[in-house]
Write a protein that binds this DNA or RNA. Structure first.
Length: 747
DNA sequence: CGCAATTACCTTTTT
DNA sequence: GGTAATTGCG
């Protein structure tokens, strides 16, 4: 038995598998057999160390990774039940049980980004912010950043109390608490809240921490380099007592910094857990020498990095090729032809190909080319199933049935199908509900009392409320049956059923498919099924969960989505300045961001087993316009063979396309005080550096309506701070209240 | 008062 | 080339 578990492993792999107690850091390079090692280690904990499977907990980032890990553990330990879960799912489960401690009821809804935006709209309207100047997305992004750093509305407020700073801070100080308040009233959480609430829950309840610590005695965290502060806190809390924490990761594959991930978490693991043991898995079993050499040579250009060597005993293989095309259409065609060629030669099958890109927008053209050439593809993204309007509507019905307080769900479906309950009536109901501290559903029941509501609207709201009230899983029996009942009673499909209109039949098909998904859930869960469970499952799926390596299709996805996967043949398309590295990273001029872009390309390249092709195009359509491209500076950092397609040598002169950004000489921009550093939190130092910007006389500012101007006077203090700006364009001078005006300092 | 078509805006990466 | 607010119409 033991023999089989460590069979065929290298020495470091074996050491990792056999490690039992205490903290363990596995630094695993790409293709180093990490999943193999951690699954065998889990098996070893059970079979050799005699630990009960129920005392093990494995946490991953994506559903895909968790599914794979669960399956592989299952095959090593048939019948055992080890909890393998994503961070978000783990948190959701914990909150279902203990959420009351942080103020949420077990029926809470999980809002997706669309619902979040809707919620933010409500909040901004409430606070009289105009959603044109304050795009909900941008506001949400700032709030998300705060949450990733575990900064509560109160902390945010006190942190920026005295700094009038840029008006964004003033806005967020007001919006953040209001948003959280609304979420609480709706008994809803967003993705970030799942982590934040859990972190808070664990931080505030030593008792619970102790219980969970005793339950989950051995914890594994995958992709540790991608954890943010909230996740770090959660993990630390769980492992606090026993220290049996095994983390795996690779700093060179940290690509989620923009989402709050702290590469420092893995870099400081050894300091956080002084008794920890570190094992490096450096031998690559995946790629050819040529591929690995190029990838290694690329990543070596990162300065903020621990030296690491990638080795392989694999064959040299074919050189990495850079395919150069005239335009993006030829690029798609070229990739398609190349795939055809390799398949026709009998060397590869469809499912052995992957095409990666930096932004989803690049997938469309590729998809069309693949269709033209009859190449079967699966695309991770596009219009995700659960993003389709019909599905979201039906989901909103289910959410409302489960959680009567769900404001966004109510507003989404109250007039779908049309019931004559338009914006005006909705707003009246909304206002009245707010004044009387009622949920929208409660208010709808008492619609008679709402001022100025028309007879028709009163009747409509009441009927709607009654209808929702009549639905329940208990009565329907199963989620699928409940869904069918909803569709029938609401006459949701009535307007388009029987229509031969293409979009109508597609909508019908979507609804059918969704009902099918619900029935599948019912079947899988049996007596364990719950509306909540179904909603949780749908809320936490991602676009990439649908791809499978046995589908017999080529795979299209972003490089971010590609992490953890491997394919015999990989194409990375659009390797051009502005795309890889992305212009956003270049604009910031921040070395860290460019280094993250480099890591991203590194991740993409190291997915390849046998063949690696990068492509660039001389012209690329950006924002609907064809723009000449510039060579990616990364292409100078490793060896690859150029192959020109099309053209007539006319553009042989390469001068004009040289990179405009010298990424090798980027200044180390001092990390702007990002509110609070992980280190300061660890050392208990709660002070964070302030960002001392403000509106001084002479400062250049931009106003969305009046354009550029110069501050000529400031007055008042605190919230009453006023700023007088002179706009040269039409010789206008305006005075604003600093905390309310949409003024932005320039430069 | 409510609905539908038209305009304007943005577009990194994801749970 | 997609979505959402805004305007015009019934």
């Amino acid at each position: 038995m033991n023999i089989s578990i460590t069979d065929g492993l290298t020495l470091p792999q074996k050491a990792a598998v056999e490690h039992v107690d205490g903290p363990l850091l596995i630094v695993a390079g790409p293709g180093s057999g990490k999943t193999r090692v951690v699954t065998r280690r889990l098996a070893n904990l059970v079979t050799t160390a005699g630990i009960s499977p129920r005392n093990l907990l494995a946490i991953t980032f994506t559903n895909k990774a968790s599914k794979e890990m669960a399956e592989r553990v299952q095959s090593l330990l048939p019948g055992s039940r080890i909890w393998v879960s994503t961070f978000h799912r783990f948190c959701a489960r914990l909150l279902r049980e203990y959420g009351e401690m942080v103020g949420i009821k077990s029926t809470f809804s999980i809002l997706d980004t669309t619902d979040q935006k809707q919620m933010m709209r409500l909040v901004l309207n409430d606070l009289d912010y105009d959603t044109v100047h304050y795009a909900p997305n941008k506001v949400l992004w700032r709030i998300s950043n705060a949450k990733n750093d575990l900064i509560s509305p109160d902390q945010f407020n006190s942190r920026y109390e005295d700094s009038i700073a840029d008006h964004w801070q003033a806005v967020i100080r007001r919006v953040y608490p209001a948003y959280q308040q609304r979420m609480l009233e709706s008994n809803a959480v967003d993705f970030d809240d799942l982590l934040v609430h859990t972190a808070t829950l664990l931080a505030e309840n030593p008792e619970l921490r102790k219980d969970l610590g005793e339950h989950y005695r051995y914890i594994l965290v995958d992709e540790y380099q991608d954890t943010n502060l909230a996740q770090y806190q959660i993990v630390a809390a769980l492992a606090q007592q026993h220290g049996n924490l095994c983390v795996t990761g690779d700093p060179d594959q940290s690509i989620y910094g923009w989402r709050g991930a702290r590469i420092e978490n893995i870099l400081r693991f050894e300091r956080d857990f002084p008794t920890s043991k570190t094992i490096r898995l450096e031998q690559n079993f995946r790629s050819t020498q040529a591929i690995l050499r190029s990838a290694d040579s690329l990543i070596a250009n990162n300065q903020q990095r621990k030296q690491k060597s990638l080795l392989t005993e694999n064959d040299e293989g074919q050189p990495v090729q850079l395919l150069c095309f005239q335009d993006s259409r030829e690029e798609s065609e070229g990739v398609a032809l190349k795939i055809r060629e390799l398949v026709d030669s009998g060397e590869f099958n469809w499912n052995q190909f992957a095409i990666f890109y930096r932004v989803n927008a690049l997938s469309r053209q590729l998809e069309m080319a693949m269709m033209r050439h009859r190449i079967p593809v699966q695309v991770a993204a596009g219009v995700a199933f659960y993003d389709r309007a019909e599905i979201k509507d039906l989901l909103a019905y289910l959410r409302l049935i489960e959680n009567a307080a769900d404001t966004t769900a109510f507003l989404r479906v109250v007039n779908k199908p049309l019931r004559g309950l338009g914006k005006t009536s909705q707003n009246r109901l909304l206002r009245w509900a707010e004044e009387n501290h009622l949920t929208l559903l409660q208010a709808a029941v008492r619609a008679k009392e709402v001022p100025k509501l028309s007879k028709r609207a009163i009747f409509g709201f009441q009927r709607f409320a009654e209808m929702i009230d009549g639905f329940s899983l208990a009565n329907a029996g199963s989620v699928g049956d409940l869904l069918v009942e909803v569709v029938e009673k609401t006459r949701y499909t009535a307007a388009w059923s029987g229509s031969y209109n293409e979009s109508d039949t597609e909508k019908m098909a979507n609804v059918e498919e969704f009902i099918g998904a619900a029935r599948q859930y019912d079947e899988a869960l049996g007596d364990e099924r719950s509306l909540q469970g179904f909603l949780e499952q749908t809320a936490l799926v991602s676009d990439t969960d649908w791809i499978s390596d046995e589908s017999g299709q080529a795979t299209l996805m972003t490089m971010h989505a590609a992490k953890g996967l491997e394919f015999p043949v990989v194409f990375v398309i659009g390797v051009e300045e502005g795309l890889i590295p992305h212009e956003r990273a270049l604009k910031e001029g921040d070395r860290r961001e460019v280094e993250e872009e480099r890591r991203l390309l590194f991740v993409g390249m190291t997915r390849a087993e046998n063949r690696l092709y990068l492509t660039e195009s001389r012209v690329r359509a950006m924002h609907g316009r064809n723009v000449p491209t510039i060579r990616s500076p990364f292409l100078q950092e490793f060896e690859c063979q150029r192959v020109e397609f099309g053209g007539d040598g006319f553009f042989a002169d390469e001068e004009w396309r040289q990179p405009t950004h010298d990424v090798s000489k980027l200044a180390d921009i001092p990390t702007l005080p990002k509110l609070m550093t992980g280190a300061s939190l660890l050392s208990g130092d709660k002070t964070a550096a302030e960002i001392p910007t403000g509106f001084a006389i002479g400062t250049q500012v931009r106003h969305p309506r009046y354009g550029l101007g110069t501050v000529v006077d400031v007055g008042g203090f605190g919230a009453k701070r006023s700023i007088t700006v002179k706009f040269p364009t039409d010789d206008r001078t305006e005075t604003f209240i600093a905390s309310k005006a949409p003024l932005q300092p320039v430069g």
